[in-house]
Design a binder for these strands. Structure first.
Lengths: 232, 232
DNA sequence: CGAGATTTTGAGAGCCTTCAAAGGCGGTGG
DNA sequence: CCACCGCCTTTGAAGGCTCTCAAAATCTCG
């Protein structure tokens, strides 16, 4: 996307100096815990979520390798969201002060991190609109497309068939539905010939129809980075 | 919150050099239009929203004086959201290149803009959780509290009574409800003694109960800005 | 004072939830 | 290798929250 200078590369590598291994299901950061570290996800998939006081959970975002996590630790004393591993995972923790130094030394990286935050923001607003204004079927379809697209960014060769890696309960927590209703929607989407399912793997049979059902917009397309300052 | 250096003050003032006046109801930026300007809201209130292709609208955020708007213009060629004036308003437009220069010259301001984005992100995730997992009554209560708090940040003296400045249709578009149901929820909240209403003005009678009903978290509290780099 | 926008109210329908239980699947220990 | 256990998926039935449709009442502004 953008060619980095050696100095920038070095600065980014500093963020990934240390490694921590996380078990599937383990929690990296719990809501309301004191936090001062940020992380970069190196391997595996994770999610961020919030818990409401009636015990229900809202999944905010799915995290894939390369994603920066817990950026809110920059700002808040106590974490506003929980971060959990969906699969075994490897993360690289780093301190706020490292980030602070990076912003001072490498303005273009600072700008790129802003770009990254804005993409994330757009994804959040898409999900917001989906929760507020679309049907259960559309929301489930949107999750399927989103997960496939994010996986394909990491593995270009990914075919129409892939392992979703989410339980229906988790899909429900991401879409604001019950697991029971997610099941019915998946069945319906399958019966309408948009997807096929077998043993945890999903095939996008009629992707066009699925995108229409989901009201889908690709937020990683249409970027314009011509304004970035020069690298150091 | 943070004491700025004269250099930083100067840079921020540059952002507010020009002024543009906007009529109530007018659109500053339309979804999918080409965009290259950012704005700072100086006077009035505005909102950002997205339109779905069935014609329904989701309001993403209400904007108050001091807010930076259309930050996504930094990143996207085409605007992902519409920005509209709720009242007559004054905005200060500036170019992406100005922002770019600011990031290079004033790392601490860059960091502060990141902080700002993260607060906004937290507010978005709160609303996401509300839409996904809370009842209509809770969502309406949350909007009431949110609006009052944001207004009070600008006018410290604001009492329990204030002018909401939103139609029930707009409250519905923000909460993912129909205007009809918003009306019923307002009535119910009123009947339960949490608020009083008269001619467009709202009084928070039992704020504690309202906050409980709304599951409210103040995202402008609990900040920790000790990590910021030095000013220039 | 009139017109359009907004608020209010009622009735009925539908989407999604809740509750409950059965079936499937993988993993673990004997 | 098999039995068992827990987790996940699937299915049914009933109920409720929110929507849709419709119309009257009220408000705002020119």
């Amino acid at each position: 996307m953008v060619a980095l200078t050696p100095g920038e590369h070095g600065a980014l590598e500093q963020l990934e100096e240390r490694e921590r291994h996380i078990r599937r299901g383990a929690t990296l950061q719990r809501e309301n815990d004191v936090c001062s570290e940020l992380f970069i996800l190196r391997k595996g998939t994770m999610m961020s979520s919030v818990l409401l006081d009636d015990g229900s959970r809202q999944i905010l975002r799915f995290l894939f390798p390369g994603d920066m996590m817990a950026i809110s630790s920059l700002v808040y004393r106590e974490a506003p969201e929980t971060i959990t591993a969906l699969t075994d995972a490897v993360v690289c923790p780093f301190e706020r002060s490292t980030m602070s130094k990076l912003i001072g030394d490498h303005p273009r990286l600072a700008a790129l991190i802003m770009v990254y935050s804005q993409i994330e923001r757009a994804a959040l607003t898409d999900r917001l609109a989906a929760l507020g204004r679309t049907s259960a079927k559309a929301r489930v379809a949107a999750i399927l497309i989103e997960m496939r697209n994010r996986m394909r960014m990491l593995d270009k060769g990914l075919s129409k068939t892939f392992t979703l890696g989410l339980t229906q309960e988790e899909i429900g927590d991401a879409t604001g539905l019950t697991a029971v209703h997610v099941n019915r929607m998946l069945r319906q989407i399958e019966e309408e010939g948009m997807i096929a399912r077998e043993s945890g793997r999903v095939t996008l049979v009629d992707e066009r129809a699925l995108q229409r059902a989901a009201n889908f917009v690709d937020r990683y397309a249409g970027l314009d980075l011509g304004w970035l300052p020069a690298g150091r």
